[in-house]
Nucleic acid binder design. Structure first.
Length: 903
RNA sequence: GGGCCGGUAGCUCAGCCUGGAAGAGUGCCUGGUUCGCACCCAGGAGGUCCCGGGUUCAAAUCCCGGCCGGUCCA
């Protein structure tokens, strides 16, 4: 399939005198009008020689390049559509938007849903973490964020738009007319693209060493090794908007083209000397030869630059390292701004972790540069620079800066630990194992440890592939698939899944409580009817319970589940029902109504939290039961009491405002363009037509649950618990309607119980507790005082026996362990003393022996053990449990042991 | 979702590997020194060793379970 030359032999090329040639370096075939060209004009087969071209000196900024690109395709019959967020929240298989085609997967590319326009053009900001290690050191070849200009045409079997020839013709037209590049300089490299389960032939358009666009013709679905032709043939192009800008500006590096004056302002803000731009230009020209995975190529590149400039390698190396780090910070701060601006909350898991990773890398780079500056100030500069292009940055400025500052504080905590960690380790030699352990458990990057070691005159080797070693350690993480989306046994699910869809009476009238239906299938405890008002579990709402009436018999329904569009009633016991039999059904209304209130209430609370806290608040999970509702939201800080109160107040205001709550069905493409991707907070449905729930002037969300028809029916909301369940995720629990009353009742009971135990009334619990606490403090002081008094007396009155040079002090049996320990300490503070304490414990005698520092306890203990005791000791303290013998006998044993010289 | 690290005096932490009388620094209190402050000196108060179970004569220490915090990976 890939080898099929016919895929690339376009009429366009033949009609326009293009020749197919083969690159002398990489052997890739390419099409060009220039009959003398021998290489494919792409790195690494060529250097970036476009930097020296006289052509196309248009000086487009990124904004200008974007505008020109979009306008060109609009003039040529494409509709401009708005880009999506950089967080791919409309799909569950990706965290980030990595290409413009991602906007249309999977429902539009598979033909289930229509595209918003056809053909269309979009400039989609994308984030790719793959090259995060390489950003900067390649002077712009790698970026974590870029805009992909894509024009797309969706060719259906019955509706053809355009295909390869037109796509290539557009490219030629755009590059020659709009950008003023002579046609002879254009090269179309034959290539093959695969991704996201699709594949097809493609052309890479290269000029002067730079790949400006990729034209993909998606036409296969990949199943294992097989390529199956797609129903839809999709034109999927990607023009590098930043590269267009770089090409027309011919600045020393891509960063200068993208960030313009911001480059110098960053150097200034960081307090670093600028880097000679002639050197950068030379570095940039040869940058294609750097393979960041091979450190020697980095060194080789620097030597080459040094030769070309006639400068010492060390000087070049230092300058370029500094430049690369500043470029990395430029790149990361823009990406951070975009991620947070679209609502990412940094955290320890999921997409949030990607944000934290980037922030940490930026902070680490700043540290390596020796710069002490707030990262948020740099991010703020990016917001200022990009705010007109991406208005969400300005809208969410407060959140973005707050989140960045918080992350910096956390990272600083890590940094302050480094010094003490290193000093505790530096006694022994630090190996790779220690570095991995420290990074893994405490997040301390190895290069910072190495730096700290160096400042102490110690050395440690950080392996070049450190991070891949770490990655390998974590490989054996099994991914748990959630196949049990239904709680039914597999054999039941298999038997009912082909049945016709059940008519959903619970959607037709969400307040319906009873119905009449006909048995479609009866499998013991499992019953399928042709229609039902029983809501099957889904969207975080539990399945209904109730009763089925048949032949005068009333059977309890304990749960309701679904398999596809078939609703299965789970009965309390097995009942044999004939197919076609008529039945009546009735749901447990009190239970259902509570769940409806909790469900609609959840939409109300979520929207309130969003409005109060910011756009970054996103549902991370929810559960609605008859007893209470639970909503997990993304947020970077703990909620204050005041914020919780405000959310509750806002929710109750909306309830009292009696707003209509309306479900309606709508085409998903239209839903997305009208309401944005936030409709998918509760999950992404897998249908072309989706059900939305609108709370008037408050919230619109995709939802399959049953809801009250007016917010007033919720009856009120009380938040009963707020906790942080994970870094970046806050859990809210609340009750609605009549459950508030039972909740209040429980609180009363609890308070009453407390009051009883405190032997007071509930109105005086607080003062009573206060008093008890005071009393307890006083008692502790008093006990301490009496202990001291007691000890003074004890010292004077203890029984002392002389056994040679050693004094044996015999303590009376003391019930107070603290007191006994203190007495032993005091009495053994001089020389030649041994203290014995014998006490009755569980019917046995516990002997404790303490000695002064010049003696030790081993001889005495040995004798006691010989006499049948169990125990031991070390140094100046020992204890032995004696099963038999009296107090006197034991003391005699001790005395004999000492006289025998056993101590 | 999985792994790792940590939780001991108000604060920062040692002790845990190898079970045997709960420690240091700092802060606090009292006294000395000083015109006074800082420094210095002496003394003192301050503990649910995160919680629960187990093993043991004996658990901060070993084992199991839980809670909380941190961190890495997906």
């Amino acid at each position: 399939m890939k080898g099929n030359q016919e895929e690339y032999r376009l009429r366009f090329f033949l009609d326009h005198d293009y020749l197919r040639r083969e690159c002398k370096v990489c052997k890739t075939p390419f099409w060009s009008k220039d009959k003398t060209r021998e290489d494919c004009a792409d790195i690494p087969c060529s250097d970036y020689y476009f930097l020296d071209m006289k052509e196309s000196n248009l000086n487009w900024s990124v904004s200008e390049a974007r505008r020109r690109f979009l306008e060109f395709f609009r003039r040529n019959g494409h509709e401009i559509i708005q880009p999506k967020p950089v967080l791919a929240r409309w799909r569950e298989d990706l965290y980030l938007t990595i290409a413009s085609i991602v906007d249309f997967q999977p429902y539009i590319t598979s033909g289930i849903s229509p595209p918003p326009a056809n053909p269309l053009v979009v400039s989609q900001p994308c984030i790719r973490m793959d090259d995060v290690d390489n950003v900067g050191i390649t002077f712009g070849r790698h970026l974590t964020t870029f805009e992909m200009g894509g024009h797309h045409a969706f060719n259906y079997p019955d509706k053809f738009v355009y295909w390869k020839d037109e796509t290539v013709a557009y490219a030629k037209e755009f590059f020659t007319k709009e950008m003023g590049i002579p046609e002879e300089l254009l090269n179309f490299k034959e290539s093959w693209w695969e991704g996201g389960g699709n594949a097809g032939p493609s052309f890479e358009v290269t000029v002067g060493g730079l790949e400006l666009a990729t034209l993909v013709f998606m036409q296969y679905e990949m199943r294992g090794q097989e390529y199956i032709p797609l129903k839809l043939k999709i034109v999927d192009t990607g023009y590098g908007i930043e590269r267009l800008a770089w090409f027309t500006q011919k600045t020393p590096t891509a960063f200068h083209a993208i960030y313009g004056e911001l480059v110098d302002r960053f150097f200034e803000k960081l307090g670093l000397p600028r880097v000679n731009s002639e050197m950068l230009k030379v570095a940039s020209r040869f940058a294609g030869r750097i393979d960041p995975d091979v450190p020697s190529t980095v060194q080789g590149h620097r030597e080459q630059v040094a030769r070309a400039m006639g400068l010492p390698v060390d000087e070049v190396s230092e300058e370029l390292t500094r430049a690369a780090r500043v470029f990395q910070v430029l790149d990361h701060t823009k990406t951070i701004a975009l991620m947070l601006g679209d609502g990412l909350v940094p955290s320890s898991g999921g997409e949030g972790y990607l944000g934290r990773l980037l922030i940490r890398r930026a902070l680490r780079t700043l540290k390596l540069l020796g710069v002490d500056v707030r990262l948020s100030e740099l991010v703020e500069m990016q917001i200022g620079f990009w705010g007109r292009d991406f208005t969400q940055l300005v809208r969410n400025r407060d959140y973005i800066l707050d989140a960045v500052n918080l992350e910096q504080e956390k990272f600083n905590d890590v940094l302050t630990r480094i010094s003490s960690v290193v000093s505790s380790l530096s006694k022994k030699k630090i190996g790779v194992e220690d570095l991995i352990q420290l990074y893994d458990s405490q997040g301390i990057p190895p290069d910072l440890i190495a730096e700290e070691m160096r400042s102490r005159g110690l050395r440690v080797e950080v392996p070049h592939n450190f991070y891949s070693i770490v990655a390998k350690r974590h490989q054996s993480a099994p991914v748990k698939k959630e196949w049990d989306s239904t709680k039914l046994p597999a054999e039941i699910a298999n038997q009912v899944k082909e049945l016709p869809p059940t008519e959903k009476l619970y959607y037709r009238d969400q307040y319906a409580r009873s119905f009449e239906g006909v048995v479609v299938k009866s499998l013991g405890k499992y019953l399928v009817l042709d229609r039902t008002v029983f809501y099957p579990e889904g969207g975080g709402q539990l399945g209904d319970q109730g009763w089925i009436l048949v032949d005068g018999q009333k059977v309890r329904v304990v749960d309701t589940q679904k398999v596809g569009d078939v609703v299965v009633h789970v009965l309390e016991k097995e009942v044999a029902l004939k197919e076609g039999a008529k039945v009546k059904g009735e749901i447990d209304w009190v239970r259902r109504f509570r769940m409806m209130r909790h469900h609609t209430g959840t939409h109300v609370v979520l929207a309130a939290a969003k409005k109060l806290l910011g756009d970054h608040v996103w549902q991370a999970g929810a559960e609605k039961t008859p007893e209470k509702a639970r909503l997990d939201i993304t947020h970077h800080r703990n909620l204050t009491r005041e914020e919780v109160r405000r959310i509750e107040e806002m929710a109750n205001l909306v309830i009292d405002d009696r707003r209509p709550v309306t479900p309606f069905e709508i085409n998903r493409t239209e839903a997305e363009s009208r309401y944005g991707v936030s409709i998918y907070e509760g999950g992404v449905p897998n249908k072309a037509v989706i059900r939305l729930l609108e709370i008037k002037d408050w919230d619109v969300e995709s939802c399959g649950g049953t809801h009250v028809s007016n917010t007033a029916d919720i009856g009120g909301i009380k938040i009963v618990n707020v906790e942080k369940i994970q870094d970046g995720i806050i859990r809210l629990e609340y009750v609605a309607g009549d459950v508030i009353s039972s909740y209040a009742g429980q609180l009363e009971d609890k308070l009453e119980g407390l009051a009883n135990r405190l032997e007071t009334s509930s109105s005086q619990v607080e003062s009573r507790v206060e008093k008890l606490k005071e009393e307890n403090e006083r008692m502790k002081e008093l006990v301490a005082f009496y202990r001291r008094q007691f000890l003074d007396e004890l010292e004077k009155r203890v029984e002392v026996r002389n056994a040679g040079k050693v004094k044996i002090v015999i303590l009376p049996a003391l019930k107070d362990g603290e007191l006994e320990k203190e007495a032993m300490k005091r009495l053994t503070s001089s020389q030649g003393v041994i203290v014995v304490h014998v006490n009755q414990v569980n019917g046995k005698l516990q002997v404790e022996v303490g000695t002064s520092k010049d003696l030790n306890v081993s001889g005495v203990v040995a004798e006691l053990v010989k006499a049948g005791g169990k125990g031991g000791g070390k140094g100046t303290f020992g204890s032995v449990m004696m099963e038999k013998g009296s107090r006197e006998e034991i003391i005699d044993i001790v005395e004999r042991a000492i006289k025998g010289g056993n101590s």
